[in-house]
Amino acid sequence: MVSSLLPRAPYLASSIPKSTASTPLRRPPCMSSTSAVPAAASAAAATGEASQPRKLPVLLFDVMDTVVRDPFYNHIPAFFQFSTSLSVWLGSLCSPNRMSMKELLESKHPTAWSEFEMGLIDENELAKKFFNDGRSFDLEGLKASMVKAYEYIDGVEDILFHLKQNDYEVHAFTNYPVWYQLVEEKLKLSKYLSWTFCSCTVGKRKPSPDFYLHAVDHLHVDPANCIFIDDRMTNIEAALGVGMVGLHFKNAEMLKKDLCSLGVEFAPVHEGEIQVQ
Rank of each mutant, 00 (worst) to 15 (best):
Asp70Pro: 03
Ser136Gly: 09
Gly134His: 14
Ser100Trp: 06
Phe72Gln: 09
Lys129Pro: 05
Glu151Ile: 08
Pro110Ala: 15
Leu105His: 12
Ala112Ser: 01
Val63Leu: 03
Leu105Met: 15
Tyr150Gly: 01
Pro96Met: 09
Lys102Thr: 15
Ala112Thr: 06
Asp62Lys: 07
Gly91Phe: 00
Lys55Leu: 00
Ser107His: 13
Phe116Leu: 14
His75Lys: 15
Leu126Arg: 00
Val58Arg: 02
His109Cys: 12
Asp70Ile: 07
Ile121Lys: 05
Ser100His: 06
Glu103Leu: 10
Val68Thr: 01
Asn124Leu: 14
Leu142Trp: 01
Glu123Trp: 05
Met64Thr: 02
Ala78Val: 10
Asp154Asn: 06
Ser100Val: 00
Asp154Arg: 11
Glu123Ser: 03
Met146Ser: 10
Phe130Asp: 00
Tyr150Cys: 02
Val88Leu: 10
Glu106Asp: 13
Glu123Phe: 00
Phe130Pro: 00
Ala149Gln: 05
Glu117Ser: 11
Gln81Ile: 12
Leu104Ala: 15
Arg135Gln: 03
Ser114Trp: 10
Phe61Ser: 07
Glu117Trp: 05
Glu117Gln: 06
Glu106Arg: 13
Ser136Leu: 12
Cys94Arg: 15
Met101Lys: 13
His109Thr: 11
Met99Pro: 13
Asp138Asn: 07
Arg69Pro: 03
Phe137Thr: 03
Arg135Ser: 03
Asn97His: 15
Glu123Gln: 11
Gly141His: 00
Pro96Ile: 06
Pro110Thr: 09
Arg135Asp: 03
Arg69Ser: 01
Gly91Gln: 01
Arg69Thr: 05
